[in-house]
Each structure stands twice: as C-alpha cells, then as structure tokens.
Design a protein around this nucleic acid. Structure first.
Lengths: 223, 223, 223, 223
DNA sequence: TATGAATGAGAGTTCATTCAT
DNA sequence: GATGAATGAACTCTCATTCAT
C-alpha cells in the first residue's frame, strides 16, 4: 500500500497532462466543425465524432456548447492572428518597411484561418460580444499597435508627418484590405491573386506615403 | 378622375395583391428573425409567429427555409443597399464631391440594415455563394461604379491623376471603412460617433487627394 | 318570371352533367395517386394536382379523403373486375370451357388494375371493411358464381361429379392462382410468363378434372 | 456446470445485452403499430409511445422509419413464418402426411401474424421489394421446398406420380388457401371456421391425390 | 475519467380540411 | 360551383444535455 500516496499525485499529473491533450483534441475537432458550419450549424455530436471522443467527454471538458465555442475562438484567435511583430526592427527604409508590413497584413487577413474566424466572429458578434473583443485584440489591435508604434518612430525621425498615428495606422490597415480581402470575405473568385496582391500592397504604400510622407520631392514610388 | 383606371388596380389587388402583401408580410417577419439569429439560428416557427401567419402559409409562399432566406436577402439587398447615385452631378468641387460621396458611403455601410446584411452574407457566403454575389452587386459594386465613373470624369477634366480608376475607387471605399465600419461589424462600442465619422470622411478625402490629386500646391485640405 | 322555373332544371341538368364529368376526372386522378401511394401515402393535394382541379373542388364532390377513397375503390371494382360472363355459353367441351375460364381468371387476377386493387383492398381491409366486401362481390364472388353455375350445369349433364359446386369452384379459383398470381402480388420477377400461364391453366384444368371429372368410372367421392 | 461460460454471457449482457433488449422492446412496439396502421399510417411517435421509449431512442437504434420497418418485417418473417419441418418424417401414409401438412399450412397462413405480415408485405411490395423477397423466402418458399421434397420422396417410392414436384407443391399450397385464407385476407367473416378448415384440408388432399396419386383403385379417402 | 444510451423539446416540412372570394 | 390561400396539428428527424455505468 506504500504506492498509493504517490498514486494520486501521479494520477493527477497524468490526468492533467492527458486532460490537456484531450482538451486540444476536442478543440481540434471543434475547429473543423465550427469552421464548416458556424456556431448554430455545428452539432456537439459532430464535434465529438470529429474529435474522436464521446459526447460525455465533451461535457467533462466544457460546460456546454457556448463554452466550447468560446474556447475554440479564443484559442484560434490567440494562435492564428499573430504576426508582423519583428518587421520594423530591421533597418529598412520606410517604404520597404511599409511594404513588408503591408504584405504581412494582407497575408494574415486572407489566410484561410483568419477568414474563417472573421466570418464566425462577425456573424456571432451580437451573441458573443466578448469573442469579438478577443478577436479584435488578438488581431487588428496588435497590428495597429505595431503599425502606429512604427509610425510614431518615423515621426520622431522626421520621415513621416502624422498627427494621429493610430488613425493613420487604421487607414493603412484599411488600404491593405482593398479588393482582395473584401472579395475573399464574400467568397468571390479572384483572378491573378498574386498580381493583385502586389498591386494592393504597392498602392497602399504609395497612397499612404503620398499622404503622410515628408518632402515628397525626394521620394520615388516604385511599383 | 374617371373610375376606370382604378379598376385594374383593384383587380390586381384582388387577384395577386393580397398574395403580394402576405409575401411582404412574411419577408418582414423573416427579416426580423434572420437578422437576430442568422440563417441556422432562425426557426421557421419563429418567423411564422413574427410574421403573424401560420407555418403552413410560410410554405405556401416559399418552398423551404433556404428559398425564404434567399428571398429575404435579395429583397433587402435590392432595397437597402442603394445610394449615392446623384451626388456627383451637383457640380461641386472635387473635394466637396468626395466628401459627399464619403459621407454617403460611410452612412450606408454603418446603417443597421447594411451591417445586418453584411453579417449574414459574410457568414453564409460559403453556403449561399449566390447571395454574396447579390449583395456585392447591389451594394459595393454599384458604389464602386459610381465612384470610378466620377473619377474618370475628373481625370478627363485634369483634376485627378489616376491610372486605374476602379482600383482607386476601391481604395477610397476602403478608406471610408476605417475605424467605424470595422468596429461596428464587430459590435464594438464607439464613442463620439459623429465626430469620428467626420474624421474618417475628412481623412479619407485628404489621403485620397494627396495620392491622386493634381497640383497639390493649389489645394487646401479642409477638415 | 316564366323563364325562371326552367332555369333551375337546366342549371341542374348542366351542373349534373358537368359534375358527373368532373367527378370522373377527380376519380381518375385519385386512381393514379392511390395506386401509386396507397391510402395513407396519397395526399389530397397530389390528387387535386393529378386531376387538374383545385383542392376545394375535391371537397365539393367528396366529403373527405375516406369518401373519395371509397368512391375510387367502388368505381374501379365495379369497372375493372368484371369478366368471364359469356364463356360457358359457347357449348365447348367441359375441358375447353374450363381452360377458357381459367385463362380469363388468370388474366383478370394478374391484370395491373386487379393487382393494384388487391393490394389496396388487402392492406386497408381492417380499416375499410366495406370496401373489401365490395371488392369480393365485384370480383371473386361473381367469378365463383359463374363457375359454380357452370359446374352445376355439368353435374346435371353428368359430365362432372361434384357435391359442393361452390366449394369446387373456389378450389378451381385457387388452382388458377398458383405461381403467377402469388408472385405478382409480391412483386417478384417471373420468367417466361406466357409459358407459365399455360402451365398454370393446363394443370389447373387437369387437376380439377382428375378430381371432379366423371369419365373415370371408378371414382367415389366421399365427404 | 462451471461458472466461466456464464461470465461471457454476463459481459455480453452488460455490454450489448441491454441494447439488444431495448432493440427488441422497440421492435415489439413497432409491430403493434405497423400491424395496426401499416407503414405510412404508423408514426414514429406512436411507436415510441407503444414501446415505452423516447423518440430519440428510436433513432439511436434505427436510422429512420424505413430501417425500423425493414427490421420489424425481417424479424417477424424469420420468427413467425416457420413451420411444417418435421411432419413428413413420421412414417404416416401419404394421405395422412398430406393432411398433416395441409393442416399446418392452413394454420400458418391464417394465423393473425401471418395475415398481418401478408397484408403489410403485399401493400408495400412496390416500395420495399426486398421485404417481399424476405417474406417469400421465410414462408412460402420453405413450405414449398418441404412439400416438393416430400413429393419427390413419394415419387421415388411410387406412391405418387408427379412430373414437376415443385409445381405440384405450389398447387397443393394454393388448394390449402381455398375459402378461408382468401376470406381472412379480406377480413370477411367466416362461420364455422373449424368445420370449414376440415373441409378445406380434406378436399385439398382429395383433389391432390386424385390428380397425382397412383392406382386410385386402391385408395380410400377417409374422413 | 470516459462512455454512449436516453431524453424530450423543437427543428423543417406536409397534410386534410376550411372558407372567403 | 370552383378556387387556392390559410390553418395548425402531426409528421420525420435532430439536438444539446444528462447520467448510470
């Protein structure tokens, strides 16, 4: 009977470890089903089947469908909406930095997982206000902070002239959503995607610099 | 003042007018429920109750839930997404015209009905591709055509310098969605909405003209 | 006012005439639908559509679905289950007469309309006892009467030796249902139908005559 | 007498035994409702109520109404249509054997469960062709095989003279359906049922032997 | 802890029947 | 007399959730 005292600890440890793995397993199944059918269209049975667990197990890990949905959204927002952190640290020219940022923003926005989350968040925003906030803070807000931080730096260096860096960042963000993002969200076909992407990036940068760049006479916009 | 003209109207009323009225009645109920719960979340019973008809009547007018949903989306896209037609004809200065257009675009995009439709269309785009197209063609496409048509006119007059008017129109459209539209779609609170709206409009116009305006030395951006 | 008295008569006449035609029209539609789907599976809407009348008209002619069903069954039993009347009058030999009767019986039993009615009657017998009686009296009973009447004649002539002509007729009737009828009722495939029919007829006659024929001077019927 | 054999049984009982019991419970309820109302007329709610389970449980055991119907038919055909196997092994005289077989056939055909299945199968044969086959193979086909096997034996012994034993068996089967079976299928009243049954049996045997018996001069029909 | 059988409310849909026109 | 819009009950089937094992 000497082993018994250690048993609970191990068990707890094992269980927690296994629990964590099973939790992930469930969330992976949930992602597939919620992505394909949305919140209302998804059924707990389908999720259980997809995840390879029983329905009872689902309810051991998540109190109900809403909780599971929230966990799925939060996990995926946290994991899939993060980028463009280190770009500005390379000592590139403002234009090249903006181009790099624009490229990352575009890529992020039109990634299948972002689009899936966007669709779900927008559609459920009225019923899950907290999730919309999570999405916003994990994705757009971080991107805007990075962007506005970089803009402030440029203003300090005198390479940009911007009164409201946060608003300017939002405008740049909007410019990056021209054409491709809108169409993808509507599931509409898009020809020459790579080409269009370059065009969106180049023109976002060009317009932004035309409006906020300093001494436009020295600048040469490329394309 | 002869009685005859009213006769056909009455006959029409008797024959199909009531049906048409009931159809509208159903679509009104459907709008309330679909808007609140989305496609999957809406129940035919709830729609019938909201519309004040029996469930059977629903199915006398629409073959099934999908058809009713499609009819609801099409009707509302057709009726609620139309604007900004006559603005450019008023002979205003380019800047003032752009401001007027921007204002109409912003107002349209953040109108409750537009937001509701946007939410539903984006969320159901994978399952109802046709409806996304309907939405796009009723709303954004028309706005972009109006906009790019006006731009082409300005280019011809030499007041703007634009290589790709359609793309430029799309950028202007994107700029109009800065801050307010994004936040509304996510159901996030927005303080000083009127003030923000002015800011979005002014800066959209300012950035656009900075990029595409001619002889910037003569221009005076207002706010 | 002199014209009025004749009006009702004419109207009645016209209406009755048209009514009769419309009644038939409805019953024709009902036949198609009841035949295909049975009583429970048939819908009044489908019958109205098939008959080319409105649902309201259905209820002007028949009080409800049961009545319409009863009318359909009675009409078709009366019209489709009648045969083999004149055969025995032709002065053929007993064997040839029996063969002719057997052929008519087999043909009647396996006619699509008989099978359809049989299916419907058997399946609804517990719920519509009267219809089963109608079917029996329109079809089998008449056939048996014809048969037993002929048998009685033969007994009187000394060409058959039968104690209970009605029962013997029923046996002959049963013998005619060997193989083909049973299989058809179960919708089972049957190869060489014409050949099988000959076999059934020949053997029904042969067995019947072996049991009830006279020429075998040694026969002693007991019972 | 060892306990171990019972262990697996218990395990089985625990694992799927309860499921099996519930399945039977459902099928029992289904039998009552399908028997009373046929396939179309039966409702899953009524079956659930009759079986004492919830509607959801019905669908845990059977994918849909058709599957439940098929399971009900197959189970009952398998269980209720089996008989007359050992009769011919007793060393009875041909006549007595035939009488015993006829009695079993008649009893089988007019048993309430056979009649119920016959009604349902005949009425649904066009929509469930497989079930008609199941019925045929569980009931009539087996009876005919038994019968024709015995006939072949008699032919080999010289007590019967039959060219086509299978066809002769079918004829005997038909003769056994005289009067009683036909009337029961039509739900028509029948007086003196026991007496009629004897008559049908006696005469079926008599007619069959008159047609297929050898040296009729030695034969003495009894009863 | 993991299971999946069980539940019953509610989903979309169809139906026989009525009745104002 | 003929129509077909309207009804609401009843249909088949699915669902989130519970709980004994």
């Amino acid at each position: 009977m000497s082993a018994t005292p250690s048993k609970p600890a191990m068990v707890t440890h094992l269980c927690t470890g296994e629990s964590e793995a099973k939790r992930e397993q469930i969330l992976t199944g949930a992602k597939a089903i919620f992505a394909a059918h949305g919140f209302e269209g998804a059924s707990m049975s389908a999720i259980a089947r997809e995840a390879g667990v029983s329905k009872g197990t689902l309810y051991n890990y998540f109190a109900n469908k809403c909780d599971l949905f929230a966990a799925f959204v939060e996990k995926n927002c946290r994991e899939k909406l993060q980028v463009l952190a280190p770009v500005q640290q390379l000592g590139l020219s403002p234009e090249k930095t903006l181009r790099a940022l624009a490229r990352e923003i575009v890529r992020l926005i039109i990634s299948p997982e972002s689009l899936m989350l966007y669709r779900i968040i927008v559609s459920e925003a009225p019923h899950f206000p907290h999730l919309a906030t999570t999405f916003w803070q994990s994705g757009p807000k971080r991107a805007l902070e990075t962007l506005s931080g970089w803009i402030e730096g440029q203003v300090a260096q005198g390479t940009l002239k911007v009164d409201d860096p946060i608003f300017a960042a939002e405008q740049f963000f909007s410019l990056c959503q021209t054409r491709i993002a809108h169409r993808k969200r509507f599931n509409m076909p898009l020809e020459n995607e790579a080409e269009e992407e370059e065009k969106v990036i180049s023109n976002a940068v060009r317009v932004f610099l035309a409006a906020y760049g300093v001494s436009s006479s020295e600048k040469t916009t490329t394309d």
